[in-house]
């Protein structure tokens, strides 16, 4: 029976990780601009140009 309790705790812990991930993504502002990030990753730097400083 103890194993069920263990599984319970594990499942809630996994769910809690997702919750934290969600909170983190909101805090990071991921939902405030839904246009730029998907477009941004498609821009490629041409060879020869120096890449932007990060």
């Amino acid at each position: 029976m103890g194993v069920i309790i263990l599984l319970l705790i594990a499942s809630i812990a996994v769910a809690a990780i997702f919750l934290l991930g969600f909170i983190w993504s909101v805090k990071d502002g991921q939902y405030e601009d839904e246009f730029s990030p998907p477009v941004r990753m498609l821009f490629d730097d041409k060879p020869g140009n120096d890449s932007p400083e990060k």
Binding site: E32, D33, E34, F35, S36, V39, R40, F43, N49, P52, E53, K54
Partner: peptide, 22 residues
């Protein structure tokens, strides 16, 4: 978006630009 985020190529003193499109 493309042009503004590459502003550093037009003016070297610009370190980074980030556009918030919405």
């Amino acid at each position: 978006l493309y042009l503004l985020e590459n502003l550093h190529k037009l003016n070297r003193a610009v370190v980074r630009t980030t556009v918030n499109f919405s």
